[in-house]
Amino acid sequence: MNKREYTIALAGNPNTGKSTLFNVLTGLRQHTGNWPGKTVIHAEGFFTYKNEEYRIIDLPGTYSLYSNSADEEVARDFIIFSKPDVTLVVLDATALERNLNLALQVLEMTDRVIICLNLMDEAKKKGIVIDIANLSKKLGVPVVPLAARNKEGIEELLETVARMVHGEINTTPLVVAYSRAIEEKIAKLLPLVKEVVGEEYPARWVALRLLDGDTSLLHALQHHPHHFLKEGATYACHCAKSV
């Protein structure tokens, strides 16, 4: 049997040093192309850690995953349909508040998340002190401080990734509490969502998107219905050619 290759998605805001991290992790083992049918650059690379192979996809840098643009749609679809073994969310430690916005959205979509708190060197210079342990506790997922440009924190990140893919880390992602009106609507919709979509997809997130009137998710649902209906069907995402 072939050795298993783990898939890692790299998400984050623009200007967070996401590509720097991607380059540090993959070195020269990377190539770029287009996401099929989209004018969005698709970058993937490979690396080995402790004799195990990892494939890493550099998702487009976006401010959110609400599919306002082709970039956001690509990133969202990959996380939802390709189900990467780990999603790394790269945050700019000097602008945590705005960056957390995306992290919270990813936490609604998957529980296999590691937060990469990048640009820690910059934060230190600016006198920004972040309580990593407390942040990790609040978010319910590991938080790894990084300075990707200086290659600091990479070892700890790789170790955390390895432990997560082997199921050695239990996560309890933070659940964002919405207004009472919205929570009531989610509660009403949730049973139906679970029935139609199945256990395989994050029901609360799907319900939220439906309430938001996300037509592009509906589009994805109807064009790949079997991926939702068939239990255990592995969905080859839009980037199937590279698999």
């Binding site: 945590l96 508040e97 705005r98 957390l100 920004i128 002190v129």
Partner: peptide
């Protein structure tokens, strides 16, 4: 709501020393 949550988390985890 998401931004409010972010703000809250930051208030409790981030301090500015300079």
């Amino acid at each position: 709501s998401i931004f409010q949550t972010s703000r809250q988390i930051c208030q409790e985890t981030v301090t500015y020393t300079k």
